[in-house]
Design a protein around this nucleic acid. Sequence first.
DNA 1: TCTATAATTCTAGATATATAAATATTTTTA
DNA 2: TAAAAATATTTATATATCTAGAATTATAGA
Lengths: 100, 100
Amino acid sequence: MDIVEISKVLANRTRVNVLKWLKDPEANFPPHQDIDHFDDGVCVGYIQDKAGLSQSTISTYLSAMQNVGLIIPTRHGKWTYYKRNETVIQAYIRALGENI
Amino acid sequence: MDIVEISKVLANRTRVNVLKWLKDPEANFPPHQDIDHFDDGVCVGYIQDKAGLSQSTISTYLSAMQNVGLIIPTRHGKWTYYKRNETVIQAYIRALGENI
DNA sequence: TCTATAATTCTAGATATATAAATATTTTTA
DNA sequence: TAAAAATATTTATATATCTAGAATTATAGA
């Protein structure tokens, strides 16, 4: 739980938006084709469409978010779903309150 | 109160440290020569000594922190004192809780 | 096994940030 | 008013981040 490393990830409008969108997938994304829920989050393609950036850029962003623990990937067939990691998100906010 | 802009400022170890040091000036800095309190914070020179970076770098960092509202400058003669802006710091943490 | 689809990784150019030396500004004091 | 001290600004270089296209990998289905 490194405040500086997580802050770097949050220092970008798109990545902050992704985190916000993942709070309410039903409201922000169309339903998936292969499954009828968002229990494991949202697939990369939908996040890409919503963000309006290239596929490689979004994939890179999601990797960065995953590397610091903000999101969790789950593979379903050829799709990767990403969901929020509430534990790390809350730990980060708590750490900020104590360490900045 | 822009989450992304404040996160950029926090995406640096030294700037996070400065914020932390300013929480307890008595514990982290020597007493000032011209005044006997830290009511307006700590002068640039002391922060520079503690951080171990060049004068221009620290001055640039403090300006960036001030620009997003995290710290407040007060001029006392030839010294500039910087103190934490608790209102903005708390507002940022609250905003994170609601927006990420 | 070949093909299509989804995602990741590699490569590269443009822009931003980190950092310090040099210079300028502000204020005090001799 | 000239020199000194503290800070800010300018300039410059090195490194990092942003972003996309191309190439690669993983998986499902024909």
